[in-house]
Design a protein around this nucleic acid. Structure first.
Lengths: 205, 205
DNA sequence: CCTCGTTAGGTACGTTCAGTACCCTATTTT
DNA sequence: AAAATAGGGTACTGAACGTACCTAACGAGG
């Protein structure tokens, strides 16, 4: 019943052991979510014991976050040649991720981290920088094409779409956002906000 | 040491008892947050025992949410005569609330509720309707004054400012948002988004 | 006014986990 | 080979949730 795999031929140490621990923790996360991540189970699955875990991570949350980082991977921003499609595509990617089991885990971890900034900062999807960079890239290309106004190249403005989608997940307890919502965000908010509007806007009194 | 107040002269029942329980839970929430809300302590503080609690609420979270509702109160939307000021003022109110101990409790509860919609819906600040109503009201007045374009009277658009502020709390683990952030949200995003074209060129300080 | 059903109160558990303590054993380093 | 370091086993403490079970007050109907 209890999974006690591979009594290791030789005793593992250092990085090798650490990898095995993280691997086990990540597997448990995927199987049972953060709520079901217990130190005992992780230790058993890794073929070791809690001591080894506590020697490396101060508590369950730290372990959970470290394990999650194994699971999350970065992605390539799309480049379709049109701002609307780039934005939609990026939103769809985020939507898929947040709707996936991984997204659920992420939300559990965020919840558990509460307002511990130093922990939150380690969640890849949380640190603002990569997100902002992605959107500034997309938007920069749109500006170069004349699709967007240069003043929109401001982190606060560039990331509005993804921020609104994140908000959708936070306020609704919703498992996944319908595509219609994504389109609404892009067409009703994002494009009107960043689009260049021609001569009307450029003249100054 | 353990507070065991007022052994009640006569045995309380029904609504009277329920009020006392909620009162006790709310006090505990304020003192120790949701993390520190234990069924035993609430029961003791109310001068009764856990059975009585479990007869009314299925679990700790349900009790926490019910108690929080006692603490949160609604507010009046401002009416300063200028959209910029109305928006800023509303954001400042929300910022103050979310920065207060009550805001911290709200975040704990949201975290604990995870994706249980039926529970989340009971959090006053969570249900989208009142928020949307407030912003549509503010924006409606701005439209009437010619400050905003009528097409902006759309829930998705009207609530952008507060959504971005909420997002600020979620992504940063930040205790309070600096006023500068509020101004940025209003001046860089909200006003450009909803402003009617005629008013676009009005300078801001 | 007395009896009986309903609801409150008291107490004690069973369980699950986090986190810790202690001591033994394998591996590496000197 | 001895010493130092790091892994392994096991047991324990303590905090809470949630439950079981029994006793005692209340209040309504005969």
């Amino acid at each position: 019943m209890t999974k006690r795999p591979a009594p290791p031929a030789t005793r593992r140490r250092g990085a090798e052991l650490e990898d095995a621990l993280l691997r086990a923790a990540a597997d448990e996360l995927v199987e049972s979510g953060y709520a079901g991540l217990t130190m005992d189970r992780v230790a058993r699955r890794a073929g070791t014991n809690k001591n080894t875990l506590y020697r490396r991570w101060p508590d369950r949350l730290a372990l959970g976050i470290a394990a999650y980082r194994l699971l999350a991977r970065s992605f390539q921003p799309p480049d379709t040649g049109a701002l609307r499609e780039d934005a939609l595509e990026t939103l769809r990617l985020a939507n898929r991720h947040w709707s996936s089991p991984l997204g659920a885990i992420l939300r559990e971890l965020m919840a558990a981290a509460g307002s511990a900034q130093e922990l939150l900062a380690q969640l890849p999807d949380r640190s603002a920088d990569p997100t902002a960079a992605t959107w500034l890239l997309i938007l920069g290309r749109a500006v170069a094409r004349g699709e967007a106004r240069p003043e929109a190249l401001h982190p606060r403005v560039a990331t509005v779409a993804i921020d609104l989608l994140r908000n959708e997940f936070v306020t609704r307890g919703v498992p996944t956002a319908p595509d219609e919502v994504l389109r609404e965000i892009v067409d009703e908010v994002y494009l009107p906000l960043v689009r260049s509007r021609g001569a009307v806007l450029t003249e100054r009194p």
